[in-house]
Simulated assay, not measured.
Amino acid sequence: MVRVPLTPEERERGRRLGEVLRDARGTRAMTSVAASVGMPVETLRKIESGRVPTPAFFTVAALAAELCLPLDALVDACGPADDLEEPRTA
């Protein structure tokens, strides 16, 4: 199976996701968070650094729950770049 390369926008979204998760973790040790959600610390390190720009949904959900970060906050922070410039209207 051939994997389609990620677009620059997808890579940027992954970078933003990692940044938001890293900020939410604050001073808490990466090893503590990774252990709490049952993932290798290296996986968390890759997500936070943007080297895994498209982690699985349940991985992101577990991290968000552990960090008390609402999923809608992640969506807002990691949406397309043009969405970040203009506030959403409902």
Rank of each mutant, 00 (worst) to 15 (best):
M1Q: 11
M1L: 10
M1A: 14
V2R: 12
R3H: 11
V4I: 11
P5W: 12
P5S: 12
T7A: 09
P8A: 14
P8M: 10
E9M: 07
E9H: 07
E10H: 12
E10I: 01
E10G: 01
E12I: 02
E12P: 00
R13Q: 15
R13W: 02
G14W: 00
R15G: 03
R15S: 09
R15C: 07
L17C: 05
G18W: 01
E19F: 07
E19C: 08
L21A: 07
L21V: 10
R22Q: 13
R22G: 06
D23C: 10
A24Y: 03
R25F: 04
R25L: 04
R25A: 01
G26Q: 13
G26W: 05
T27E: 15
A29K: 15
M30C: 09
M30A: 10
T31Q: 07
S32L: 13
S32G: 09
S32D: 14
A34H: 00
A35E: 14
A35W: 04
S36G: 15
V37A: 09
V37D: 07
V37I: 15
V37E: 08
V37Y: 03
G38I: 02
M39K: 11
P40A: 14
V41R: 04
V41Y: 02
T43L: 12
T43D: 09
T43K: 10
L44T: 00
K46E: 07
I47P: 00
I47K: 02
E48C: 10
E48I: 09
S49A: 14
S49I: 05
G50F: 02
G50H: 08
R51Q: 12
R51H: 11
V52M: 02
P53Q: 05
P55D: 08
P55W: 07
P55V: 11
F57C: 13
F57A: 15
F58H: 14
V60R: 08
A61F: 11
L63C: 08
L63G: 04
A64T: 05
A65D: 15
A65C: 10
C68Q: 14
C68A: 14
L69E: 10
L69Q: 13
P70S: 04
P70C: 02
P70Y: 07
A73W: 03
A73L: 10
A73E: 15
D76R: 12
A77C: 11
C78K: 01
C78E: 00
C78S: 02
G79T: 03
G79I: 00
P80V: 00
A81H: 08
A81G: 00
D82Y: 08
D82S: 13
D83E: 13
E85Y: 06
E86I: 12
E86M: 10
P87H: 04
P87S: 01
P87Y: 06
P87K: 00
R88G: 13
T89G: 09
T89R: 14
A90I: 03
A90T: 05
